[in-house]
Amino acid sequence: MFTLEEIQSAHQKIKSGSDFPQYIQDLKTIGVKIYETFVRDGHTEYFGKDGNRISSLPKYDPIEIAENCQYTKFREILRFHQEGKSDYFTFCKEVAEAGIAKWMVDVDKLNCIYFDSNNTLIYEEEIPE
């Protein structure tokens, strides 16, 4: 059973998108199976085996999610962030403007799926090990 403190400790190591793969490995080590991050306020819900579930507090004041997803703009924002060229809040603000409402990470399958506000799958990618 993992704790919010363990998750926060792993998260503090992230300085940019390029640190994301190691973060996923750290979550896997403590028992997180899946998590969903909600762009509107930055809160995340973490799920583990045996029904273990923890939700974080919002990370920032609510931001508006664009109604229409701009796929090309989103992909540019994502690439820029993964190259370590933006911080977390900037990334969240920019993907909200591009119409992304949340992302879900499957720690075991090493994939990340992005959704719009209608819960439509917009983009799925593998997470490098």
Rank of each mutant, 00 (worst) to 15 (best):
F91M: 12
G51W: 04
D19N: 15
D87Y: 02
C92W: 00
T3G: 06
R75M: 08
K85N: 10
I30H: 05
H43L: 14
D26N: 13
K28M: 08
H11T: 10
R53T: 13
T29E: 14
K49Q: 10
D19M: 11
E94L: 15
H43V: 08
V32E: 04
E67D: 12
K59H: 04
T29H: 08
F89L: 11
F91C: 09
Q8S: 15
Y35K: 14
P62N: 05
S86F: 02
V39G: 03
V32C: 09
P62D: 03
L78W: 00
T29P: 00
E83C: 08
G42T: 10
E36G: 05
F20N: 09
C69H: 04
K28F: 07
Q82R: 03
P21G: 10
C92D: 02
D41Y: 03
K59W: 01
K28P: 03
D50P: 03
Y71Q: 12
E5T: 12
K73F: 02
E6I: 06
F2N: 04
Q8D: 12
F2L: 08
K73Y: 01
G48P: 06
G31D: 04
K73G: 01
E45M: 14
T3R: 01
P21A: 13
S55Y: 01
G31Q: 10
I65P: 03
T44K: 15
D19V: 14
G84N: 04
P58D: 05
D50C: 07
I14G: 09
D26Q: 15
D61P: 03
E67W: 06
E5S: 13
D41Q: 07
V39A: 15
Y88L: 09
G51Q: 04
F89G: 00
F38C: 03
D26L: 10
F47K: 15
L78G: 02
S56T: 13
C92Q: 09
P62K: 06
D19S: 10
T37C: 12
Y60V: 14
Q70W: 02
L4E: 05
Y23D: 02
R53N: 06
I24T: 07
Q25W: 00
I54S: 06
H81T: 12
I63F: 00
I54W: 02
K13P: 05
I54D: 04
N68Y: 05
H43K: 11
Y60W: 13
F2T: 06
S55F: 01
G31T: 09
I63L: 03
F74R: 00
F47N: 08
Q8P: 02
I24G: 02
N68F: 11
T72Q: 11
L57M: 12
G17S: 14
K15G: 11
I30R: 02
C92R: 00
I65S: 08
Y71D: 12
Q82C: 02
G17H: 11
D87P: 01
I34C: 09
S9F: 11
K73D: 08
R75N: 08
A66Y: 09
V32Y: 04
T72N: 12
I65K: 06
K13E: 11
I63Q: 00
I77N: 01
A10G: 09
I14A: 11
S16E: 06
L78H: 05
R79Y: 04
I63N: 00
F2G: 06
T44D: 12
D50S: 14
K49L: 14
K73E: 12
S55G: 05
K49C: 07
